[in-house]
């Protein structure tokens, strides 16, 4: 298992993580060795095994359709206080084009 520089760049973009050109080789090595470890799974026969998505066998609990929270302007201030950029009660981001 060996990841190419292009694959690393593609993954980094999918994950929206900038990586420096000079670190790509290191990432490629690290990821390759991690997937080398991961591929030890291939030794196990699992054809008839039911995948286990979760440690719990329970079913989803449902909540009643009740409005339990109201966010007034004051509470909004608190919830937005960590925002890097905001104005008029909105979060601001670089221009979205579509």
């Amino acid at each position: 298992m060996s990841l190419t520089a292009d694959e690393v760049k593609k993954i980094a973009y999918l994950a929206r993580i900038s990586i420096q050109e000079e670190n790509i080789e290191q990432y490629s090595q690290d990821l390759s060795s991690i997937f080398g470890l991961v591929e030890q799974m291939n030794a196990a026969a699992t054809d008839d095994i039911e995948p286990m998505a979760h440690p719990q066998h329970a079913m989803q609990r449902l909540r009643d359709d009740v409005v339990t929270e109201t966010t007034d302007i004051e509470h909004r201030e608190k919830l937005m206080s960590n925002a890097p950029a905001r104005q008029d009660g909105l979060f601001l981001v670089p221009k979205v084009l579509d």
């Binding site: 997937f35 991961v38 799974m41 291939n42 196990a44 699992t46 095994i49 039911e50 995948p51 286990m52 998505a53 440690p55």
Partner: peptide, 13 residues
């Protein structure tokens, strides 16, 4: 990878 790991998870459990 993901589905295989979930099956292994069952084996371990």
């Amino acid at each position: 990878y993901y589905l295989k790991a979930q099956k292994i998870r069952r084996l371990i459990s």
